[in-house]
Design a binder for these strands. Structure first.
Lengths: 359, 359
DNA sequence: AATTATACAGAAAACGTTTTCTGTGTCAAG
DNA sequence: CTTGACACAGAAAACGTTTTCTGTATAATT
């Protein structure tokens, strides 16, 4: 059985209270000699504080809950990793619960987290939230990362889709394109709305007229991108570039162009969105806008921690910008391409950068 | 503040002890009328047990730790999800810690988990383990899932790579191939060793002679697959099929074949391994052997739970088989292809299957 | 020199449970 | 009618901490 305060007290000849004060770095004054002796015997006994007991007393668990629809949905792992890395800096750990898009499981998950209890909850990639009254009744802070649809909510971290879409279009314009089509996502999604808006704003900025038949619907999937691109190519005045609202549809568009006997990027330039893993593997690899998922996770954790520790930072909504990753599908020349070393995965890139800046 | 036992006791007119016995479904006899009354007031007060207090008393936290090199490495999320789903059936939750392949962080992670404390630890996709003495000294059970290299360890769940490789080769033989090349992974990896062995065994079974120059090295990456395939194609007696030890190298091989002006699968058939997400997106999409990652996670959790609850199931090593996913890159005809509905992701498939078998 | 403030140490309460230990009333067996 | 067993209920200890409350010796102030 592990050593406890009592053991150290007995061994060192001081009281439990004093031992506790030394070991928690309390501001309470303890003579240097005593402190040293206690530290020494704690070390010798291999003391490791029992956080369960501490939590019972302090009502702080140094643990936060993460509620996610499904850890396997594509953006969840990097968001979670971002959260975990930020939490680690404050010695917090995270409990992860999946709800599988089910209201009952969501409720059960929150109950389960609250009774642990956790100091707060982060909702990741969360589509709905029907049991918010549970959170408020328990008086625990909550933060939302990348809410997919539904009404906007306070205390959330979301991607700046308007910005991302506009830099994608900017880039195509810089490359000389003025006939730029857009393939959208399902309209109920925030990201689809934002990216459409960014597309329109960028065209306006460059004084390019909006062509109605170049604005196509999509389903976030390869198939939808394929079909919409196919229709675009059949137009007599077909565009010279296509901006798809995600990488899967961009890939579908690439296939459609290729199947029509044309080349990407020589005949049609294509830009995607998300920087999914496959986008740098595929031929041609896809120029895309990264989703700043890792960063969003970090920021969400930051906000939650501040709420837990200081009670500050209530009711913010933070928008996070992603960068353009220039690859082959847009036809930019070699010199403009984003440094390939870190292309694989934005979050991994950040981890590597933190670890060893020279490697 | 949430209701506690004391509140229920006061409200219902019985003692804390009795309330506790009712609420924990203890075998201790309590009169039916009393039980009912207590249950009723507990419901009315919205009682939610404080697991911290319970844990302090029972020395059981209903929480297990998951130590992973990096949650973002490709197989980690589905393994974790498998673990979580199995744990959920026993009302256990999991704390996840990343070590980033660093010995100090590994040690810190284990310490952090043990002081929570957790009831056991699962090591996922773990490359090394230098701090095993910590686990044994704390007398907590541990299970290893998919250890990448190093000496085999007891209490582990690993993929049956020998089997997987052999069914891949079997399939190519069935399609009429007898000139089958192999691109291996780095030799230090268990999976590379196992898949090579499976390749050899399958050839032997079909009485096909092993050709030394058809056994190529690889690096698990697209580039390595590309180079090795390129060399194979330059041979005067080049093979008609290539089995690559993972999907990334299989994709590299596909590119090499295409760049040589040949077609996949008409001229060269290619089979990969892992069933990574991109393998069904890419053109041609890749016939591959699934890594039973989700299942491995479930089994690991099963073993750990049994150790925690009964103390049984010590020192097993479980091997898990994956299935062949037939797609386009091998040249099988349409009827042999694996049902496309669930191709996207094996673990997701399992989740969906559990949720609604008819959908 | 007397008083007051301060630096330090320990005893004990408290956090919310579970469970052992006591205690009482009822019932069955002798 | 007595005795032992048993069904039930409550009091209290225990889990390992943190922190308040007391207490004492020393230093600072008058």
């Amino acid at each position: 059985m592990p050593a406890k305060l009592e053991d150290i007290a007995r061994e060192s000849g001081f009281s439990i209270a004093t031992v506790s004060r030394v070991l928690t770095n309390s501001t309470y004054p303890v003579r240097a000699a005593v402190r040293e002796k206690i530290l020494e015997t704690a070390q010798a006994l291999g003391y490791r504080p029992n956080l369960i007991a501490r939590s019972l007393r302090t009502d702080q668990t140094n643990t936060v809950g993460i509620l996610v629809d499904d850890l396997l949905s594509p953006f969840s792992p990097p968001v979670v990793r971002g959260i975990q890395d930020r939490l680690k800096e404050n010695n917090f750990l995270s409990l992860i619960v999946n709800s599988d898009w089910d209201v009952d499981q969501e409720r059960a998950g929150i109950e389960s987290l609250l009774s642990r209890p956790v100091d707060g909850i982060i909702f990741v990639e969360y589509s709905h939230l029907t049991s918010s009254e549970l959170l408020t009744s328990a008086n625990k802070p909550g933060v939302f990362v990348h809410r997919l649809f539904g009404t906007p909510i306070k205390n959330s971290v979301v991607p700046d889709d308007v910005y991302g879409a506009s830099i994608a279009v900017d880039h195509l314009v810089t490359l000389g394109h003025r006939a730029i089509a857009y393939i959208n996502g399902p309209e109920s999604w925030h990201s689809a709305k934002g990216r459409l808006e960014g597309y329109k704003k960028a065209l306006e900025k460059h004084e390019i007229e909006l062509v109605e038949e170049w604005m196509m619907p999509g389903d976030w999937e390869v198939e939808g991108g394929y079909k919409s691109a196919q229709q675009l190519l059949q137009l007599s005045n077909h565009p010279t570039a296509i901006f798809a609202a995600n990488d899967l549809m961009a890939l579908g568009a690439i296939y459609a162009v290729q199947d029509a006997g044309l080349r990407v990027p020589q005949d049609i330039a294509i830009v995607g969105y998300d920087n999914r893993e496959f986008s740098w593997i595929v031929r041609p690899n896809i120029t895309t806008v990264e989703m700043p998922v890792y960063e969003m996770g970090r920021i969400a954790a930051e906000i939650l921690l501040q709420q837990i520790l200081d009670g500050t930072r209530e009711n913010e909504e933070v928008k996070v910008k992603g960068e353009l990753i220039v690859r082959d599908s847009c036809g930019a020349d070699q010199s403009q391409k984003t440094d390939r070393r870190f292309e694989r995965n934005t979050s991994l890139r950040r981890v590597l950068l933190n670890k060893d800046p020279d490697n």
